[in-house]
Design a binder for these strands. Structure first.
Lengths: 128, 128
DNA sequence: CCTCTATGTTGACGAACTTCGATACAGGAC
DNA sequence: GTCCTGTATCGAAGTTCGTCAACATAGAGG
């Protein structure tokens, strides 16, 4: 389960090529790969799932703690989790009866980097 | 900068409430608003459009320079530009015959901030 | 073995999305 | 005024997406 494709982000990563979305025009292929990740974030349910997973203290959360937070069927939640995983944003592991999910921070770090303007050192946190 | 009609992002902005996507579970309403913006980024054409607009030297670009870069009809490009505008990512102005688009950097800055982990000062650019 | 619970997969349906051609609108040139 | 060009809007066709019920699978425990 943890041997899934780690995600399209690898092809658009900062270390691969680019100074970010905002500094130079994106290539067609890079745009396709990146769009897959943003599309995964383009749903309220997936956004909340990702947020719940990422903000968990221990770094991981059981599906059994995610599902009851939504007014959706269990297969639907499973479907959204799969999309987040295929986008390379999260990963999971089965431990006995339960399956645990966790964030892949490299993914969100790269997205944040791609959205950061060249001249800007930080997006937020600066003046805090 | 905090009192603009900056689009849906205003409701999820860093200065409005949150420590980001990754530090605390997102509310249902915030997730809906944020998902609108990410959905706008979830298409390769729009991603390239945004990138072309953002990376332009003068800060703005004419539609007549955007359309020929794609194998798509002019109405389709216009449609995608409208979605980016409704997401609060870009804005435009007609000057004579032509219409010019530019990036709204607050939007991308906020997205980058939301995707930045609490402990992390910067997503990239640090060691540059 | 069987049964129970937790999770993932399949197939189907309606809604939303992307794209196009046709058309409408805005402004410049005549 | 008319004509031409650049851009937006409209309506429709084809595709993708979100959701569910039904079923399949994995592991625990008898």
């Amino acid at each position: 389960m943890s041997k899934q494709e780690v995600g399209p982000l690898g092809h658009v990563a900062v270390d691969d090529c680019c100074p970010g979305l905002l500094a130079a025009p994106l290539g067609e292929e890079q745009a396709v790969e990146l769009a897959r990740v943003f599309k995964a974030l383009g749903d309220p349910v997936r956004l909340r799932l990702l947020s719940m997973i990422a903000s968990r203290e221990g770094g991981e959360i059981c599906v059994c703690d995610l599902t009851p937070a939504f007014d959706l069927s269990q297969p639907t939640i499973s479907h959204h989790l799969k999309q987040l995983r295929q986008a390379g944003l999260i990963d999971c592991e089965r431990r006995g009866t339960w399956v645990y999910y966790w964030l892949l921070p490299e993914a969100t770090d790269r997205l944040a980097g791609l959205l950061t303007r060249p001249g800007r050192p930080l997006p937020a946190e600066t003046s805090a």
